[in-house]
Write a protein that binds this DNA or RNA. Structure first.
Lengths: 213, 213
DNA sequence: AAATAAATTAAACAACCGTTTGATATTTTT
DNA sequence: AAAAATATCAAACGGTTGTTTAATTTATTT
């Protein structure tokens, strides 16, 4: 009987539908009544489970952003991988996260510029700086081992990798339409993010001066 | 007396203050009363000059986005410049635009994901695809002339260049703070965007396989 | 100086906002 | 089966939203 009290099904449904609506309409433009209607629950249930609309957004960020950290930690402690392998595995994981939670990353894109929420801002800041310091450490160690030739500016490196990913995500519909692609959305997505990953791996290799065997 | 009827000073003031507020709070989270108060005009003046809050946003996008096109056209028709020079001049101009209108580009970042406004979406789409096709044309011509070695995927190229720029813009406060920089904001900005330009020029050269003299 | 046009204002409009209430139903624990 | 805790709901709360109205002031044209 001592099971951890898990999130009720309705709360999960609210979160999922809120994420979708926030992604396509924005946080402020989405009303709690819309969320409630989409999730087929009474409006009061949002306050009941989350306290407020704002805290619902916090919950969404916390749920989506804490999961990636354990993976990175795990990779960090893998002695059988060299710095290049660690970097590419983490990048692959990041691309996969975006691929599987595209709506959340759209929420992130529109929210991070304008939100005043301290918890969300702190969470974003910490996560981003973590990745920056991590990749800089890999670059440093890799250069020491003569695996890499250069140690690029960590801020610029992050801007390129993450910036390319986010921009590619938000422009996906435009690109798909313009390239006259007639695949199904699922097929297109798969190919799109795979291509993106391979491309970013190449840029990373170039910036680090990593020579592929 | 046949002067072109120019935008009244108050309308300009409204636009400027709205831009600032939209940039830091988001379009939906900014009320017309806030804008009116910041611009020191009566609320009704916004409807009077622009028709609605939505059309005010449209006006902002039109004003900020149409100015860059003439410059590009001008560069296109410069026979004394080769493809590499044209690309870097246009990139430099783009970086300068962002530098001088940072607030607008923040508005763009938070708006483009969520807006349903047809005119704004069409404007964004057209401008972006213009740049993509333009750079792809330069790449193609450059390769033909043996100026470049490669003709990269135009969507990926755009994602990297513009994505890096936008990400660097929105992360600027975090980066400035984290790098413990103690310059004035103006000095820091100048250096920040210059560094960004030189860096992106290098990436562009690498992706095109352009060998410096 | 009279007439016309443009600018400005406070107040009112209806619609919607996020949140709370208090009653009722359902589930879980004793 | 009684008691306690949790879940659900319609309705109401006070406040804010973007926009319009109608009256008044200011500027321009005749």
């Amino acid at each position: 009987m001592d099971q951890v009290k898990q999130t009720p099904a309705k709360a999960i449904s609210i979160l999922r539908h809120a994420e979708k609506l926030f992604a396509h309409k924005g946080f402020e433009a989405t009303s709690v009544r819309e969320i409630a209607h989409a999730a087929k629950v009474n409006v009061a249930m949002i306050s009941y489970y989350f306290g407020s609309k704002e805290k619902l957004l916090e919950k969404l960020f916390e749920k989506r952003m804490t999961s990636g950290l354990e993976f990175v930690q795990q990779i960090m402690e893998s002695p059988e991988l060299n710095e290049w392998q660690k970097m590419t595995v983490i990048l692959r994981n990041y691309v996969n996260n975006i691929f599987h939670a595209q709506n959340f990353y759209l929420v992130m894109l529109s929210t991070q510029v304008t939100t005043k929420n301290k918890r969300i801002l702190a969470l974003l800041r910490r996560t981003r700086l973590n990745y920056i310091e991590l990749f800089d450490l890999f670059a440093l160690l890799g250069v020491e081992k003569r695996l890499f030739k250069y140690r690029p500016d960590p801020y610029l490196l992050q801007s390129t990798i993450i910036g390319s990913l986010y921009y590619a995500l938000q422009m996906k519909p435009v690109f798909k339409d313009h390239s006259k692609n007639h695949q199904s959305l699922a097929e297109f997505d798969e190919e799109y993010f795979n291509k993106l990953f391979e491309y970013l791996k190449n840029i990373l290799a170039t910036l680090l001066g990593y020579e592929d065997n």
